Amino acid sequence: NNDALSPAIRRLLAEHNLDASAIKGTGVGGRLTREDVEKWLAKA
């Protein structure tokens, strides 16, 4: 759900042209964290 994304995470996803639904969030309530996105980028 994009409503649950912080502005910083939205920007990070946009910079790398990523789809938030492709990344499993580990934050509160399954929210994406910066670490989630960075780990996903490291694997890609």
Rank of each mutant, 00 (worst) to 15 (best):
R11N: 10
T33S: 05
R31S: 12
L32R: 02
E38N: 06
L13R: 00
A20V: 13
I9H: 05
R31G: 06
T33H: 01
G29V: 03
V28A: 12
V28M: 10
S21M: 09
L5S: 04
R10M: 05
R31N: 09
G30N: 06
R34N: 11
L18E: 04
R31H: 08
K24V: 14
R31P: 03
E38P: 02
E35A: 11
H16Y: 08
K24S: 09
V28Q: 12
G30P: 01
E15N: 06
A22V: 13
A42V: 10
A42Q: 14
P7I: 11
D36V: 01
N1V: 14
G29E: 08
T33M: 05
S6P: 13
K39Y: 13
T33D: 01
V37A: 04
R11P: 00
D19P: 08
V28D: 11
D19I: 09
E38I: 13
R10T: 08
N1E: 14
N2Q: 13
L32F: 04
W40P: 04
L18S: 04
L41T: 02
A14S: 11
G27R: 02
N2V: 12
K39R: 13
R34V: 15
A14K: 12
R11G: 07
K39Q: 13
L5F: 06
L41R: 00
I9V: 12
I23H: 02
A22W: 14
S6R: 05
G29A: 08
G30L: 00
S21F: 07
K39H: 13
E15A: 11
A42C: 07
P7Y: 01
S21D: 12
E15L: 10
G30W: 00
N17T: 05
N17I: 05
D3Q: 11
L32I: 15
L12R: 05
K43R: 10
V37W: 05
R34Y: 15
E35P: 04
N2K: 11
R11D: 10
G29N: 14
W40I: 15
S6Y: 05
S6A: 09
P7K: 12
D3H: 10
L5N: 05
R31I: 13
S6H: 10
W40K: 10
S6I: 06
R34W: 15
S6F: 05
R11S: 09
A44H: 14
G25Y: 00
V37M: 04
A14G: 07
K43S: 14
K43H: 11
G29H: 09
P7G: 09
V37G: 01
V37P: 00
E38M: 14
A20M: 10
S6K: 05
A44S: 11
I23G: 02
R31T: 13
L32W: 06
I9N: 03
R31A: 14
V28N: 08
R34K: 14
D19Y: 03
E35K: 09
R34L: 15
D19Q: 09
A22M: 15
H16R: 02
K24D: 07
E15Q: 11
A8K: 08
L5Y: 04
A4I: 14
I9A: 04
G29F: 04
N17H: 12
W40E: 15
L13T: 00
V28T: 11
S6V: 05
G27H: 02
H16E: 02
L12N: 02
A22Y: 09
G29T: 04
A42S: 13
I23Q: 02
A42P: 09
D36T: 01
S21H: 09
E38Q: 08
G25N: 02
E38S: 04
L18C: 02
E35N: 06
A42R: 09
R10L: 07
L41D: 01
L13W: 01
L41M: 07
D3Y: 00
T33I: 04
D36N: 01
H16F: 06
P7A: 12
G30E: 04
E15S: 08
A20S: 09
N1T: 12
V37T: 02
G30D: 04
A4E: 14
E15Y: 10
R11Q: 13
K43Y: 11
G25W: 01
T33C: 03
G27D: 03
A44R: 05
K43F: 11
P7M: 07
E35H: 07
W40R: 12
V37Q: 00
K39G: 13
G25P: 06
R10K: 13
K24L: 11
I23E: 01
L5H: 06
S21A: 12
D3V: 09
R11Y: 05
S21V: 08
R10S: 08
I9L: 13
I9W: 06
L5W: 04
